[in-house]
Design a binder for these strands. Structure first.
Length: 583
DNA sequence: GCCGTTTTCGGCCCGACTGTTTTCAGTCG
């Protein structure tokens, strides 16, 4: 049983407890435990199998005696009796009702108690038949809202990739800024924290036009943006709407004096904010989206910027990417927050394709684009022959490609280093699909798991390990295989593979392209903990794809990585030296 | 159910919006 699955069971138990009207603090501890499971870099099944299982479980923050027993039960039996007992009082499908907008545990409980409604279809039927009208708090509008919610739910349930949300935010910001007196638009929420996907978009807006007396006109401007598909809610200083692609956007217009408090509040995460508010209470303060204020007389301590709020709580300012309740508050108190890697620290991109295979630009064009970005080196790494659909290079063409790369490198006269590389496939026996004498010519050999077939975990792990152990392999490409496998849990033993990479000095690729999602935060933290060298790159098939590097860097920041932890933050010479030496 | 320089009981985060309940409960972020 994977951590993710354990988290789901705990989360569902929390939902069921909520429907059954249990103590809210008990519910919270289930949710907190679920979050801890999601974020842990250790597999619970390994902890439970160990000698001192209970003690190790208790060491995880948010896990006490009761929850440790629950986790052990889940790992051993695959089930949680407490959850099954709760679900037997309802229908298993009752949990999907909670996913409808405006539907919370109290309403779900009411629907069940009154009419035994336990799934979306039954709810829709009852709503259309007018059977809900007799229930308390069910007026005409409420029923309409439910039907609309069901329609939304069926049309769209997923989350949006960070790049989609980022581009949408930029476009909306431009339109909002067109209003005179609006000066700043900042995305908050999970987009600001740099998560791989976002559920909805939070935009915070300020400027003279957002002061209380005049804000109505600015709200009207936002509510009439042409990009809006439908308005969900509209308040004095807030507009919520849906875009045509189904993305929900919440725009809040705030006076300048409380902008920092709002930015802090709406950036989250929930866990981080709860911890921060608890800390505020210890200081005799209360923290809200308006201000950090003294409890006794409501006088404001800090509100205009995030920095002053953190400072007033004796904390260093915490970068948004770290605000996930993973120890950042303690680190901020001790002045031990890491100096996170930044986009400008990246000196090179060592995974790119050209028109020799499935890229769209020449070597020369890729080099020019890299120069424009200020890189001091790149590696050209086209596909090898096994990937026939991309016109992959065989031994002869690969050797020719190396020659051309060297020529371009010479033409650059030191303005940029152009390294010769290849992205090879791992074959059925774990070998690489080009000859040793060709691989020996390469500066960078990326052994990619991206064409491995989805087969039993043990065989897959064995093949990948063999490829990692190949003396020519410098980088393990697409290390989680997510690209191809498209399913969780991992179909091979990632832990064992990363461990071997660390031992052998084979670097692990972190692909920056949001559509790949090769390594998630958790995978990156695991790789780092195991001591792997990490390389961030864009797998660029086109010059413009180099722009994606910024998303990869966000992920590295979320994993608490500094520039010392990332191989291509080093200059070319050191980068090559740090790669495994040639056999 | 968790947790502890006010500890083993008694706490545990805050405010706005919505709809309809003329005083507030439920949901959401």
């Amino acid at each position: 049983m994977e951590n993710h699955a354990i988290a789901s069971l705990l989360e569902e138990t929390a939902d069921l407890l909520e429907i059954s009207g249990a103590d809210s603090f008990r519910i919270r501890s289930y949710r907190r435990a679920a979050e801890a499971m999601e974020q842990s870099t250790q597999q619970m099944r390994e902890i439970v199998a160990a000698q001192n299982a209970t003690r190790e479980l208790l060491a995880i923050p948010g896990i006490g005696k009761g929850m440790a027993a629950n986790i052990e039960e889940i790992v051993r039996t695959g089930r949680l009796a407490a959850r099954e007992e709760l679900i037997s009082q309802y229908k298993p499908t009752i949990l999907e009702l909670l996913k409808l907008p405006g539907m919370g545990p109290k309403t779900v409980a009411l629907l069940w108690d009154a009419q035994k409604i336990g799934d979306v279809d039954a709810l829709e039927k009852a709503a259309r038949a007018g059977e809900l009208d007799a229930l308390p708090r069910f007026g005409k509008k409420q029923v309409e809202k439910i039907l609309k919610g069901i329609e939304e739910y069926r049309r769209h349930t997923g989350r949006f990739r960070i790049d989609v949300a980022d581009e949408t935010a930029a476009r909306l910001a431009e339109a909002i800024l067109a209003f005179p007196g609006i000066e700043v638009v900042t995305p908050a929420g999970s987009l600001r924290r740099g998560r791989e996907t976002v559920g909805d978009l939070d935009l915070l807006v300020t400027g003279p036009a957002c002061e209380e007396e005049v804000v109505a006109a600015a709200v009207e401007h936002v509510a009439s943006l042409p990009e809006i598909a439908s308005i969900l809610a509209r308040g004095q200083n807030k507009v919520s709407f849906l875009m045509h692609n189904g993305l929900q956007v919440d725009v809040r217009l705030l006076p300048q004096k409380s902008y920092g408090a709002a930015l802090q509040y709406f950036t989250g995460s929930k866990t981080h904010n709860v911890a921060l508010r608890q800390r505020a209470l210890k200081y005799g303060y209360t923290l809200s989206e308006y201000a950090l204020a003294r409890m006794k007389d409501d006088s404001v301590v800090a509100s205009a910027t995030e920095e002053e709020i953190y400072r007033a709580l004796d904390l260093d300012w915490v970068p948004p990417e770290l605000r996930e309740g993973l120890g950042e508050i303690d680190a901020a108190e001790a002045h031990k927050l890491p100096k996170l890697i930044e986009l400008k620290d990246i000196h090179g991109d060592v995974h790119m394709h050209t028109d020799a295979t499935d890229g769209r630009n020449t070597i020369r064009e890729m080099v020019e684009a890299a120069l424009e970005r200020g890189y001091s080196y790149i590696a050209i790494t086209d596909h090898s022959r096994n990937l026939a659909m991309t016109n992959g290079l065989d031994d002869r063409r690969a050797a020719g490609q190396v020659k051309r790369i060297r020529e371009v490198d010479a033409e650059m006269e030191g303005r940029i280093r152009v390294l010769a590389g290849i992205e090879v496939d791992i074959l059925g026996d774990g070998s690489l699909d080009l000859s040793d004498h060709v691989l020996a010519e390469m500066d960078v050999v990326i052994a990619s798991v991206h064409t491995l077939l989805n087969q039993p975990a043990e065989e897959m792990t064995e093949r990948i390990l063999r490829a990692v152990e190949n003396p020519y392999t410098r980088i393990l490409g697409h290390p989680t295989g997510r690209l191809l496998l498209k399913r969780e849990p991992f179909a091979f033993d990632l832990n064992a593979v990363l461990k071997r990479c660390a031992e052998l000095g084979v670097a692990v690729e972190h692909n920056a392209a949001p559509e790949r999602l090769d390594l998630k935060d958790r995978d990156l933290r695991l790789a780092h903990e195991l001591g792997c060298n990490i390389v961030v790159n864009t797998d660029a098939h086109h010059t413009t794809h180099l722009e994606k590097m910024k998303y990869g860097v966000l992920q590295l920041r979320r994993a608490w990585l500094t520039k010392d932890d990332v191989l291509n933050a080093l200059p070319a010479k050191k980068f090559l030296a740090k790669l495994r030496s040639k056999p």
